[in-house]
C-alpha cells in the first residue's frame, strides 16, 4: 500500500549513498580532471531539469537554453551590477525562469502545439531571448558579462581559489537537490498526473486531470531547475555571453544527457552526463594526441566532434531508450 512512499525512500537512500561516494572525488581527482567532474555535474543538473519537462511530462524541449540563460544572466547581472550574492541570484533566476516557462508553456499549449511544432516553439523562444539580450546595453550586449575576481574566497559570493574543491561540492549539492526534487515529484500525486497526461491527455482529462495545468506546472518546474545550474555555471567559469547562455548549442547540450541516459527516468540524465562529458574529453584527446597508427588525424579540428557524434548515434542505435533507460527496462522484464 505504501509502495510509492517506499519507492521514494529507497531512491532517496540511493541518492544519499551516491552523494557520499561522489563527495570523495576531490580527494583523488585534481587539476583538469576536477574541471571535467564539475562539467559532469553541470551537465547532470541541467539534464535532470530538462527531464522533468522533456521526459516525465513528455514535452520535448529544444530550447532549454532559455532557462539556463535566464539563470546565468540573472545571477551574473545581479552580481556584476549590484554586488548581490549569486545564491540570491540563483533563487531570483529560478523564479524568473519558472515564470517564463509558465507563460511560454501556457501559450504553446493554449494554441495546441504538439510534437515537433512544440519543440520548434521552445527553440524560437530561446532564440528570441538570445536576440533580445544581445541588444541590451545594460547586459553588455554581445560582449557578455564577466564575474569580478575577488581577492579572498567567499561562500556567500560563491567564489574560491581555482584549486578549491568547493565548486565541486556546490555543484554536487545542487545536483543532489535537483535529483531529490525529481524523486519527490515522480512519487507524488502531481507527478502521477504529469505522467498520465503524457501517456494519454484525453484519458487523463476523463480521469479528472487538467492536462494544460499539469503540463504548465512541469515546464515551470523544469525551467527553474535548469536556471539554477545556469547561475552556477557563471560562477564556475566567471563568464557568460548571449551565445553561451541562450544559443542552440546549449539547448542541445541540455537535452543530450537525458536522451543518452534515458528520458523519463530518475537516473537517466545523471548516467547520461557521466558518459557524455568524459566521452567528449576522450574524443578530443584522441584527435589532439592520437596513438601512433592514427597519426594522420592529429590536430584535425572538428574531427573529434564527428567521432563524438558517431559514438552517440551508436549508443542510441543499440540502446534506444538511453543507456540507463534501456538497461532498467531489461532489468524490469
Amino acid at each position: 500500500m505504501r509502495a510509492r512512499l517506499a519507492e521514494a525512500q529507497s531512491q532517496l537512500l540511493v541518492l544519499a549513498a551516491m552523494a557520499a561516494i561522489l563527495a570523495t572525488v576531490p580527494l583523488w581527482l585534481h587539476g583538469s580532471g576536477r574541471t571535467v567532474a564539475i562539467r559532469v555535474l553541470i551537465s547532470a543538473g541541467v539534464g535532470v531539469g530538462w527531464n522533468v519537462m522533456g521526459g516525465f511530462a513528455g514535452q520535448f524541449s529544444f530550447g532549454h537554453a532559455a532557462y539556463f540563460g535566464i539563470g546565468a544572466y540573472t545571477g551574473a547581472y545581479l552580481l556584476v551590477s549590484h554586488g548581490i550574492s549569486p545564491w540570491i541570484g540563483m533563487v531570483v533566476g529560478a523564479v524568473l525562469a519558472a515564470g517564463f516557462g509558465a507563460l511560454t508553456g501556457w501559450l504553446s499549449f493554449r494554441y495546441r502545439l504538439r510534437g515537433a511544432y512544440f519543440a520548434l516553439a521552445t527553440f524560437a523562444f530561446a532564440e528570441m531571448l538570445r536576440l533580445v539580450v544581445q541588444a541590451q546595453g545594460w547586459l553588455n550586449a554581445t560582449q557578455g558579462l564577466q564575474v569580478p575576481v575577488r581577492p579572498e574566497s567567499s561562500w556567500w559570493m560563491m567564489q574560491f581559489s581555482t584549486t578549491s574543491p568547493n565548486y565541486y561540492f556546490i555543484g554536487l549539492a545542487l545536483v543532489v537537490v535537483l535529483v531529490a526534487i525529481t524523486i519527490l515529484l515522480v512519487t507524488s500525486r502531481r507527478g502521477m498526473f504529469i505522467v498520465a497526461v503524457r501517456e494519454d491527455e484525453e484519458g487523463a482529462a476523463a480521469a479528472g486531470v487538467d492536462g494544460t495545468a499539469n503540463k504548465v506546472a512541469a515546464v515551470a518546474l523544469s525551467g527553474a531547475m535548469t536556471a539554477v545550474m545556469g547561475t552556477f555555471f557563471v560562477q564556475v567559469f566567471f563568464f557568460i555571453d548571449p551565445e553561451l547562455a541562450f544559443g542552440p548549442a546549449e539547448s542541445v547540450a541540455i537535452l543530450l544527457p537525458a536522451v543518452i541516459g534515458g528520458t523519463g527516468t530518475i537516473w537517466g540524465p545523471v548516467v547520461g552526463a557521466l558518459i557524455l562529458i568524459p566521452l567528449g574529453e576522450w574524443t578530443a584527446g584522441i584527435v589532439r594526441d592520437p596513438p601512433a597508427f592514427l597519426d594522420a588525424v592529429a590536430g584535425r579540428s572538428g574531427l573529434d566532434l564527428v567521432l563524438f557524434a558517431i559514438l552517440l548515434i551508436l549508443i542510441l542505435l543499440f540502446l534506444p531508450k538511453g543507456v540507463y533507460g534501456s538497461l532498467a527496462h531489461r532489468w524490469r522484464r
Binding site: V195, E199, G203, A204, V209
Partner: peptide
C-alpha cells in the same frame, strides 16, 4: 481505449482516485 500505457494497472486507477 486510452490507458496510461507505461503505468501499472494500479497507478492507472490511482490517478482518478487521486483527483478526489
Amino acid at each position: 481505449m486510452r490507458p496510461f500505457g507505461s503505468m501499472t494497472v494500479l497507478d492507472n486507477v490511482t490517478v482518478p482516485a487521486a483527483t478526489g
